[in-house]
Nucleic acid binder design. Structure first.
Length: 276
DNA sequence: GTCCAGGGTAAGC
DNA sequence: GCTTACCATGGA
């Protein structure tokens, strides 16, 4: 079906490092595997997109997945100094949407993300899906269930490139499979309780917990600090990030900063700035 | 071959 | 409480 999504930047969202199961088909066309379904999205220009699903599935699943009910235009009304680094980041990455991903997949993805590049994480996720997930089409596999990963042996997990993270993944999956932690029942917790619960999983520290809070449970004040954000904070927010200015938006701004910092490095180094 | 990656853990202080 | 060595592996 055709959908009009004002301001949505499909390519930037797909490459933003929050979801690792987008597969680029062409400039503005991607396959996405989520919720055990394969979706093809084509950007047609003028904020129009073609999704390979019917209207019922769109409203039942993808409208929520892409967070299309959220008012991203409100970011533009926040108190941000014109020309500041944050202002530039919003200008560049304002079309990124913070997805509402499945908690289990997100939890596993960010446990295995530690000390890995985004392309390497995608490779691992595909390997896990192919080895332990259900086939849902030609060369397409759903992300594995908690049971499948809980019952996986270490050799099999390491064959997916997990390295020393393999026991973290297996033990966390076992906690979910055993119902020692109920990921579907954490939505009602406040941020502090949710973080504490996630931190009880092996291989989950503050950064991974923040990613799961932001990218699965949509806690928009979660603010993951990885090596990229660390550098951004050191260089552009020596007094610390002004969280109190942006309640309910910090996580989105963090994602914009992350995308912008990586983009700057790709396009000629941090000193290069064609706009000034 | 070298360097780095959406860090966490455990040991030591 | 706060540092620090160590952890495996792929991608650039």
């Amino acid at each position: 079906m055709l959908v009009h999504i004002p301001g949505f930047d499909l390519a930037l969202t797909a490459q933003s490092g929050q979801c690792f199961r987008f597969h680029q088909l062409s400039d503005d066309s991607f396959n996405l595997i989520a919720h055990s379904r394969l979706l093809t999205i084509d950007g047609l220009g003028n904020d129009k997109f073609r999704l390979s699903c019917d209207e019922a599935e769109y409203w039942q699943l993808w409208h929520n997945y892409f967070d299309l009910g959220h008012d991203y235009a409100a970011i533009g009304a926040l108190p941000v100094q014109a020309g500041s680094y944050l202002h530039q980041a919003i200008g560049y990455a304002g079309g990124v949407r913070v997805l509402r991903q499945e908690p289990f997949e997100t939890l596993i993805a960010f446990i295995l993300s530690q000390r890995k590049s985004i392309p390497a994480i995608k490779t691992c996720m595909e390997a896990l899906a192919k080895r332990y997930g259900e086939p849902i089409g030609e060369e397409a596999y759903a992300f594995p269930s908690p049971k499948a990963l809980a019952q996986a042996d270490e050799a099999g997990l390491k064959a997916c490139g997990l390295g020393y993270r393999a026991p973290y993944i297996q033990k966390t999956a076992a906690m979910v499979f055993d119902h020692r932690i109920d990921l579907e029942n954490l939505y009602h917790l406040d941020d502090g309780a949710l973080e504490q619960t996630l931190l009880s999983c092996p291989g989950v520290g503050k950064k991974v917990a923040a990613c799961v809070m932001l990218f699965a449970y949509h806690r928009l004040d979660a603010f993951p600090v990885d090596v990229w954000i660390q550098r951004v904070l050191l260089e552009h927010f020596p007094e610390g990030f002004p969280f109190s200015l942006y309640p309910g938006h910090c996580g989105i701004l963090q994602q914009y900063l992350f995308c912008y910092a990586r983009h700057q490095l790709k396009s000629g180094g941090k000193g290069a700035n064609l706009s000034t």
